[in-house]
Design a protein around this nucleic acid. Structure first.
Lengths: 351, 351
DNA sequence: TTGAAAGCGTTACCAG
DNA sequence: CTGGTAACGCTTTCAA
């Protein structure tokens, strides 16, 4: 126990000290109702509130009002720097409505997601914003929504779920990445994929293949998709990919996010391949560290802050009962740095 | 509104459906009291609970019980990758006690901190764990504690505040960093400091100066301390430092955290100085990206996960009314990578 | 082993 | 404009 702890001050204490009824105090403190109270009374009450250090009990008020002004935000990995700007965006949207985000991390684990959603339900969050959804989670999320908690999808979308979603064109993003490699002159392009049951990664693959097809090419090699988009997985699968290519390695890699790319860079280095001289790399997200890696990553920017903000707004709109999707849609955009360059001449494509 | 939204199921609905009194349902669901209820009744109730999809309303139960099982966690910058493992550590500690962290980000801004603490108070969090404290915040935090919310300090400690704290020896850390540079043969060592009103940064400076003094040296140059530990500030102050040194730049830099170090690396590059050939850098924290920068950062490891876990445990202990500090104390430890090397010979120290 | 009633801190409604 | 009363969903006595 803290030293000098005072018993918590309730609205009743304030009423007593100000010599009014509790309902009067309640009104004096409610911005919606201040106008139906005598100015003098209101001032006196405010003074007492200050003096006693009264803090309204949001839980109690929420119970009565049937609301918590809380929105659960579920991310798959707080360690992915992508989510810091995303969360700030969400917070900025919620702040304006006096809602608070309740941030949780699934560690990209299905069981944890289940537990977390249950917990958020018990806390009566009014909506859940999730960037942690995999395909297998559709039913779970729809159920959550059916039981009265709004659900908003961002980053990791789920096309056929019918759930409100902040759009982002990952197919376009994938195409942009690979078009860049094609323009640099690459013909032997391989892909390091994120998990296949995560829609954006599949979309990026699609974009990659579209771009390649338009140039009359196909992916030259593809590692088994990573089970989660982490540095370790990126390294593992890049090594595997290089191994599977034998002595005709691709001249360029499309790596589906920055974390995987970090692993890919390590893998290349450990195989004695220089980037970008021997192998170019284009990745995705443009997390803050992308500018400082070795070499600095050429990457497709995912507008995380904007997406977070839109997700927050969208959730609030649904909580308020106004349906309809959000209009925002910042397009992906290529950020050129050092990890992708023209392929070395003199090593003609074997295919 | 979600389609097919059902009115929320309350304990009364369960009681009715199971044909028992609500208090019986309450008991059936309370692990502490299951033994004083007929097994048959309990099973029937559990069945109904399942069938109706009943979710106990934690807010309501908390109101009655006078607890929220929530702990506020206040960090200065979610974008600092240091805090991901820290938060995971906290979550792991709280999970075990069925508490939930309510994570907030002050953006290292005092006014936001004030607002956030007030908000957390209104939500009746049972404790606040903060890594966002600056010296000017002592009174604020003590006041919070006095009014009944436990307060735990981690990472950014406040020595004379009397508040429970997870210890970390930053003086030692600073010394380790600079000793490493001295052992490599550096004699002209400068420092890029974090904000002076943040204790760990001051402690790191102290450690740095201690190490130097023990070698009969002093800091060769010191930029004005950064106002916040960010990449931009790191770049700015390193440039300023280099400028102030004229044509006798230091051969090594102790940069007080990884984010500042990223900025320092940029600054060196933009001034045409190679790292580590011209200027060595040792930084602090060992955030995950430190292994992938250009060059990879030699840095002092701050055991963020362990500190988070300890902070969570400490907070829980105080909430339970058991005082006394925590025993844990993982020491800082040098992680040697590529950013620090022996100084070039042939450029004799000017001093 | 179960039921009844009171109350946690707040707000909404109805009187006055 | 203000006071009283009931109720939000739950738990905890106290009785039976």
């Amino acid at each position: 126990m803290a030293v000098g702890e005072r018993p918590t001050v309730t609205i009743r204490d304030v009423a007593r000290a100000a010599d009014v009824h509790v309902s009067t105090v309640s009104r004096a403190l409610d911005p919606q109702k201040q106008w139906l109270i005598a100015e003098a009374t209101r001032l006196r009450i405010l003074e007492v509130v200050e003096e006693l250090g009264y803090r309204p009990h949001r839980g109690a008020s929420g119970l009565r009002r049937g609301q918590t002004r809380t929105i659960g935000v579920v991310v798959p990995d707080l360690g992915n720097p992508l989510y810091a700007p995303f969360l700030r965006g969400v917070a900025r949207a919620l702040d304006a409505a006096d809602f608070m985000p309740l941030v949780t991390d699934t560690e990209d684990d299905h069981d944890r997601l289940v537990r977390i959603l249950r917990h958020l339900e018990e806390r009566r969050v009014e909506a859940v914003i999730t960037t942690a959804a995999r395909e297998g989670d559709v039913a779970l999320l729809q159920q959550l929504r059916a039981s009265g908690t709004e659900v908003v999808l961002a980053v990791r979308t789920l096309s056929d779920s019918g759930l409100p979603t902040v759009p982002h064109d990952d197919v376009l993003g994938g195409r942009i990445a690979v078009d860049h490699l094609l323009e640099l002159g690459h013909r032997r392009i391989a892909q390091v994929q994120g998990p296949l049951d995560v829609e954006p990664f599949r979309a990026r693959s699609q974009g990659c293949e579209d771009a390649l097809a338009a140039a009359g090419l196909a992916v030259v090699a593809r590692a088994q998709a990573a089970s989660s988009p982490t540095v370790a997985e990126g390294e593992r699968h890049t090594l595997e990919l290089l191994r599977s290519c034998g002595d005709a390695p691709p001249t360029a890699l499309f790596v589906q996010n920055d974390l995987l790319a970090l692993g890919a860079l390590s893998a290349l280095r450990s195989r004695g391949l220089r980037c970008p001289e021997d192998v170019s790399v284009v990745s995705y997200n443009d997390a803050f560290f992308a500018a400082y890696t070795q070499p600095a990553l050429t990457t497709v920017r995912l507008p995380a802050h904007a997406i977070g903000y839109a997700a927050g707004r969208l959730a609030l709109r649904h909580v308020a009962g106004e349906d309809g999707d959000v209009g925002t849609s910042v397009q992906p955009e290529l950020v050129v740095r050092d990890s992708a360059a023209a392929p070395a001449t003199g090593s003609p494509p074997a295919a």
